[in-house]
Amino acid sequence: MLLKKTKGFKPLLITIVFVYLLWLLGLPLWTLIQEAYQEGWTKISQELFSLEVLRAFGLTLLLCLSAVVFNGIFGTALALVLVRQNFRGKSLIFGLLDLPFAISAVVVGYALILLFGHGGILAGMAEALGIRLVFSVPGMVIATLFVTFPFVVRELLPVLQELGEEQEQAAATLGASPRQIFFSVTLPNIKWPLLYGLSLSFARALGEFGAVLVVGAGIAGFTETATIFVFRALEERMYAGAYGASLLLILLSLILLISMEAVKKAKN
């Protein structure tokens, strides 16, 4: 109502939004492309296909996929338990769900080092299992899982709540076993929000820096992810590599965002 009455106010607002977005998103991206162009595309592609960059991207992909697999299984299971079961401390778990959003990833990484590192409470357990968790890939997987954990659960909770149990009960009276019920009734009903939650987890894992750096220590060619590589390349003035890796990360994010939009449409 206010917008209609004041002439010229609406175009002004839209202009502000555009300028803001351009300044915040467009300009940095443009500068990056500009700088990369000046470095020369040949040099950049050479850098991109160097072993350490390939390894860094390989590791990032591995972390992203572990986030997808683990959150897919445990996120779905947790959401089902939270919606379907009543137990003491349920509200506490609900409160803790968003913890990874609130806690700094660096703190998370540090906490994991304290937990699994020398003298940590779970150090013995990790040792007994023969897994090295600190300054290693398994530790980075755990850190990634921590920061990506809320996405699938948060996406599924309202959907499961709305879905209710009647379709599943109807399937049961028709003779479906619990496994058949899950795969032929529950899963088809939650597949789009699940896929959306998994894309968010993937995106978060792709861009994660702090937690994986602290836990993995960013050892080049070993525990160095794509984002950590960009950081190191900039510090060591390897600009071609930094720009190349940055642009590739942006490209991956864009592909992910576009597919997420498609998922979102299907979801609704």
Partner: peptide, 14 residues
């Protein structure tokens, strides 16, 4: 071996 009909139909939407 019972058939059950729910108030809100509970049809499989998909």
């Amino acid at each position: 071996g019972v058939g059950f009909v729910f108030q809100n139909y509970a049809l499989f939407k998909h």
